[in-house]
């Protein structure tokens, strides 16, 4: 598709800023704030990637998920992180979500936009000199709400089939 987006440039700028602020909330571990970036009806999915032959029907499992979350389950994760005994995040991971290649298109519904992006997550743990790198392709649905936006869908496919992190106690 070589045609440029028909979405108003000012709206695109706003959505890019919104996405960057969302990443900042996660990376600053303001998880309660982060939940406000997410719509009440959000679907938050990270499918399992399976190493397949080139002609296989799918590489991203239609049923298998690393995350299969909604607002309620994300709140469970956040409530847990707010305790003193979420051991996987004691001491906390230092993350940086580098979001690039953001493309914004109209969806079928007015006020909702299909937003794709590349996201490289750098994660440093404790005294380890070996960070985790998680490279991700995201397909979000971003909804206009009042003066700002909310994410109504996050779908994120991790490029690596076997992820070089002992756990994923972070958000994608």
């Amino acid at each position: 598709m070589t045609a440029l987006s028909t979405v108003d440039r000012a709206i695109q700028e706003d959505i890019k800023e919104f996405i960057a602020r969302e990443a900042l909330a996660v990376d600053e571990r303001r998880f309660r704030d982060w939940l406000d970036f997410l719509a009440e009806d959000i679907t938050y999915d990270v499918p399992l990637r399976v190493v397949r032959e080139g002609l296989a029907e799918w590489e991203l499992s239609p049923t298998g998920r690393i995350f299969q979350d909604n607002k309620q389950t994300l709140e469970v994760r956040v409530r847990r992180l707010e305790t003193d005994f979420a051991w996987a995040e004691q001491p906390p991971s230092r993350t940086r979500h580098y979001v690039t290649n953001v493309l914004i298109d109209d969806s079928d519904k007015a006020g909702e936009y299909e937003v794709t992006s590349y996201c490289l997550i750098y994660r440093s743990r404790g005294d380890s000199i070996e960070p985790n790198f998680v490279s991700v392709f995201r397909k979000d649905l971003v909804r206009r709400v009042g003066d700002s936006y909310q994410i109504a869908r996050r779908w994120a496919a991790i490029d690596q089939a076997i992820i070089n992190a002992h756990n994923l106690s972070i958000f994608i």
Partner: peptide, 9 residues
């Protein structure tokens, strides 16, 4: 599984 809360701990 790898993003599970029990598993992480």
């Amino acid at each position: 599984a790898q993003a599970g809360t029990f598993e992480q701990d």
